[in-house]
């Protein structure tokens, strides 16, 4: 409980308050829970892999180009988010803002492409109710997309707080935690790219 402050110049701000330290560890535990959550979705998707019923197969609809653009945007945003934290640790508020805003813009671009992809699929006759396979697809990719949306909104709110209150042990802990979340979304996307798209194309090809 106590605000046992560590006044060491080398300690990053986010680790300086007791609350900050507890929150960061708590968030890591939460990410563990998120891994279990997404694993269950992956398990579902993979079990239902061949169950396309009367609907189209993924091989017919998946488009590599869009997926690659999405992957590139999210991967880059994870990198820029890392730079933003690097700037924060240098106590450079301006740098933090610039790189975080780039991150959010890339995230929004990713989301735009994903929505476009979903709309295309629906037009081509694959919606959540088409078959078990497409239910699995839309829910796993959609859950990730929902996470990205929440991430954008959350980071925006935290940046407002930083703008108002400056970089304090409290606000920087929040920024750091939101960055963990953002990187984690990229980790999940790596597996979506591999298990949903690549695997979907490989298995339905053969």
């Amino acid at each position: 409980m106590a605000h046992a402050e560590v006044h060491d110049h080398n300690t990053p701000l986010e680790y300086q308050s007791e609350t900050g330290r507890l929150n960061i560890l708590g968030f890591w535990v939460f990410l563990g829970a998120e891994i279990a959550l997404f694993s269950t979705l992956f398990a579902t998707y993979l079990v239902l892999m061949y169950r396309t019923g009367d609907g189209p197969t993924p091989h017919e609809l998946f488009e590599l180009k869009g997926v690659l653009i999405e992957t590139f945007l999210l991967l880059t945003s994870s990198f820029t988010c890392g730079i933003a934290i690097h700037e924060m640790r240098r106590r450079n508020r301006k740098g933090l803002f610039i790189w975080m805003i780039i991150t959010l813009a890339l995230g929004a671009g990713f989301l735009g492409y994903e929505i476009y992809e979903f709309v295309t699929y629906v037009h081509e006759g694959a919606a959540i109710g088409t078959s078990a396979f497409w239910s699995g697809f839309f829910v796993i990719v959609g859950t990730h997309g929902l996470h990205v949306t929440m991430g954008i909104a959350w980071i925006t709110l935290i940046l407002i707080q930083v703008a108002r209150r400056g970089l304090t042990p409290q606000t920087s802990a929040k920024v750091f935690i939101s960055s963990l979340y953002w990187h984690f979304l990229d980790v999940v996307w790596i597996f979506i790219f591999t298990a949903v798209y690549l695997t979907g194309m490989v298995l339905h090809n053969g």
Binding site: R21, I24, L25, W28, V29, L31, G32, I35, A36, F38, S39, T40, F42, A43, T44, L46, V47
Partner: peptide, 23 residues
Amino acid sequence: TGNTQTGNILFAAFVAIVIVAGS
């Protein structure tokens, strides 16, 4: 904390593999 975080993620990876490969 570093060890806890790492252990946490490794255990999550174990659970993830059980869930996915097991299912």
